[in-house]
Structures are given as C-alpha cells and as structure tokens.
C-alpha cells in the first residue's frame, strides 16, 4: 500500500514541479550550478570506469576466443556492442545513481531537515520547481556523459587489446566498424534520456519528502539509490524489448 502511495506522490511531484516557475534569471543560475555539480562533477569517475571496464571487456572477449576460425576482429566488435548497448547507458547510470542520486537526496534532504524548504515555501516559492526542475534540466546533458563513456570504453578496449598483445590495431578497428547499426546509438541515447529523468527525479522525491533528522537523510539516500537502480533495470528491460525486440 505504501508503494502505491509513493508512486502516486511521485507523479504528483512531477506535476507540481512544473507549476509556478521560478524567475528565469534565478533558474538560469541554478541550472548552471547543477550542470557543474551533477554532470561536470561526474566526468572524472565516468571516464575512469569506462576506460578500464572497456579494457576488461576486450581482454575477456579475446581470452574466450580459442577457436582459430573465429576472426580476431570479433574482439573490437564485441567491445563496441557491449559498451554502446549496455555498459555505457545502463551500467554507468547505476554508478551515477550512487554518485549523483545520493548527492541529490542528501542535499535536498538536509534542506528539509534544516527547514530551508519551509523557508522557500513561506516566501511563496514553489520549492519543487526551485530545487528539482534545475536538476532535471541539468541532466538533459547526461547523454554527453554517456557519449564520452562510449568513446572511452571502446578506446580502453583498443589500448588493452593492442598494447596487451591480444589483437592488432587493424583487427580491432575493423571489428569496431563491422556491421555497425546507427540505430543502436539512437537506442542508447533514448535509454540514457529516460534514465536521466529517473536519476534527477527519484532521488529528489526521496529527499524532498523525507521526515526526521540526519539519520533519515542517510537512509533516504540509500533508499533513493536502491529504487533508482531497480527502476533503471526495469526500464532497461522494457525499452530494450520495445526498441530492439
């Protein structure tokens, strides 16, 4: 019953977020700050993980090809497909749910605990629009993060393969270009945009409506991460079935 209540409250929050918009001059500053906090601030960890996981995917693929009849360019092909279709959009989103999601929940939750949200509401400001909408706008740039993750993942695979002696540079590049379907990129970016919406709104929901003190802020951050991950995995299945199935 509580789940149903939360789902209803979540969609009402989404609706309320668009009511009584904040002045554009203020909103612009908030969006730029959130782009810095949520998007630019995530680039380092995304780049690091993408590069090394891309490398591991390439190494694992090459180690599992024992048959001499299987061409070596399969390594590049498998790395590209894994990175573009699943690793960059989905795996990175789960990591971002931990980093960005807990940041959003704890920052909004702390504002709730210290009555800063009440202060906004007393002034007649729509606190949901002021706090959540800029985060949603900032996360519209999330596909750029994923594009970087895709590039670095494949590049990591190339470096690991070529410099680790698993295949030649030519084979890997041939593999990366083999049977390339541009729609896969569209599919990945559509998924990414949907995940961006989830990553901005679910943690905001748990932060905004939390009750209690500092301990509850921590609990809300954990709950937000768990639900973000669950929703991302479910939506990933749903979108893959609809778009590629």
């Amino acid at each position: 019953m509580n789940y149903l209540h939360n789902i209803g409250a979540y969609f009402l929050m989404i609706k309320d977020m668009f009511r009584r918009p904040t002045k554009w001059s203020v909103m612009k500053t908030l969006i730029l700050k959130d782009i810095d906090d949520l998007v630019i601030g995530s680039l380092g960890i995304v780049a690091f993980i993408s590069f090394f996981v891309g490398g591991v995917v390439a190494i694992q693929t090459s180690l599992n090809i024992n048959n001499p009849l299987i061409p070596k360019n399969l390594i590049g092909f498998a790395t590209r497909q894994s990175v573009i279709l699943e690793f960059a959009p989905t795996f990175i989103s789960i990591i971002i749910a931990g980093k960005v999601g807990s940041f959003i929940t704890s920052s909004i939750g702390t504002m709730r605990v210290t009555e800063q949200i009440d202060a906004l509401e007393v002034m007649g400001i729509n606190a949901l629009n002021y706090l959540v909408f800029p985060k949603l706008m900032a996360m519209l740039l999330y596909p750029f993060v994923i594009a970087i993750a895709m590039f670095l993942g494949i590049f990591g695979g190339y470096v690991a393969c070529v410099y680790g002696g698993y295949s030649t540079s030519e084979d890997f590049i041939n593999g990366v270009q083999l049977d390339f379907i541009p729609f896969h990129i569209v599919y990945a970016f559509i998924k990414t945009l949907v995940f961006a919406f989830v990553l901005a709104t679910i943690p905001s929901f748990y932060g905004f409506f939390m009750k209690g003190g500092a301990l509850e802020v921590g609990k809300a951050s954990t709950t937000a991460f768990v639900w973000c991950s669950v929703v991302i995995i479910l939506l990933n299945y749903l979108l893959t079935s609809i778009m590629l199935g």
Partner: peptide
C-alpha cells in the same frame, strides 16, 4: 519568517 534554526541557505 525567522525559523528556529535560522534556515539560512547553506
């Protein structure tokens, strides 16, 4: 409004 804890924006 003056809140008990100040409620200043951190």
């Amino acid at each position: 409004m003056v809140f008990q804890g100040g409620a200043l924006f951190d």
